[in-house]
C-alpha cells in the first residue's frame, strides 16, 4: 500500500480512537460552555478530515498520473536508504526500553554502563574489547558524577544494592 494512504488510514484510526476517548471525559460543574471535551472533539474531527484529504489526494494523484507513482516509488526507495532498516532501528530503541526496566533494580551506574556497553557492541564495536568495557564503566561513573554528584539529581541506586548503602 502507498505510504500516504497507509498514513491516512492510521491517522483516521487515531482520530476515531481519540474521539471515542474524548466522549469519556468527565463533566464538571466548574466547566465553561466549551467544556473539557470541546477542543479534543474538534481536533479529532479535524484530524479525521485531514486524513481523508490525504487519502483522497493520494488516490487522485495515483489515478491521474501513473508516472508520478513511479517517481514516488523511486523517491521512497531513495529515502529508505537514508534510514536504518526498521528492525534494526527498533532494536536500538529496545535497549532503551531494557534500560528503563533495569534502572530501578540495578541502579543508575550499572544500568548506564550496561546501556553504553551493549549499544557499542550493537553498533559494531568488537565484542571482547577492553575499550568497550572501559567506555561502559567510565561512562556510567562519568554520568553519575555529573547528574548525581554535581547536579544533585536523585537517580535510582538500585533495589538490589539497597542493603549495601
Amino acid at each position: 500500500m502507498n505510504k500516504d494512504i497507509l498514513s491516512g488510514v492510521v491517522l483516521l484510526a487515531i482520530a476515531g480512537i481519540y474521539y471515542t476517548w474524548s466522549t469519556r471525559i468527565a463533566d464538571s460543574t466548574l466547566s465553561d460552555e466549551i467544556g473539557a471535551d470541546g477542543l479534543p472533539k474538534m481536533l479529532a474531527i479535524l484530524l479525521g478530515v485531514l486524513a481523508v484529504c490525504l487519502i483522497g489526494r493520494t488516490v487522485l494523484a495515483m489515478g491521474l498520473r501513473a508516472a508520478a507513482a513511479t517517481a514516488t516509488k523511486a523517491e521512497t526507495e531513495e529515502e529508505e536508504d537514508d534510514n536504518a532498516p526498521l528492525p534494526r532501528a527498533l532494536g536500538f530503541l529496545a535497549f532503551g526500553a531494557a534500560y528503563v526496566f533495569l534502572l530501578p533494580f540495578v541502579g543508575y551506574i550499572v544500568a548506564t554502563a550496561l546501556l553504553i556497553g551493549t549499544i557499542a557492541i550493537y553498533e559494531g564495536a568488537p565484542r571482547r574489547s577492553w575499550i568497550v568495557l572501559a567506555a561502559a564503566i567510565g561512562g556510567g561513573l562519568f554520568y553519575w558524577a555529573i547528574f548525581v554528584k554535581l547536579l544533585g539529581v536523585n537517580q535510582p541506586m538500585g533495589s538490589i544494592f539497597q542493603g549495601l548503602f
Binding site: 534500560y99 534502572l103 543508575y108 567506555a135 547528574f147
Partner: peptide, 26 residues
C-alpha cells in the same frame, strides 16, 4: 559511532529522568 551512540543515548535518558524523576517519562 559505536561508542558515541551509547553515550548520547545515556545522556538523553539521564536528562529525561531528571525532569520529574520519572521512569514513565522515559
Amino acid at each position: 559511532r559505536h561508542y558515541r551512540a551509547g553515550f548520547i543515548f545515556a545522556l538523553i535518558l539521564s536528562g529525561i529522568y531528571t525532569l520529574n524523576n520519572s521512569l514513565f517519562d522515559l
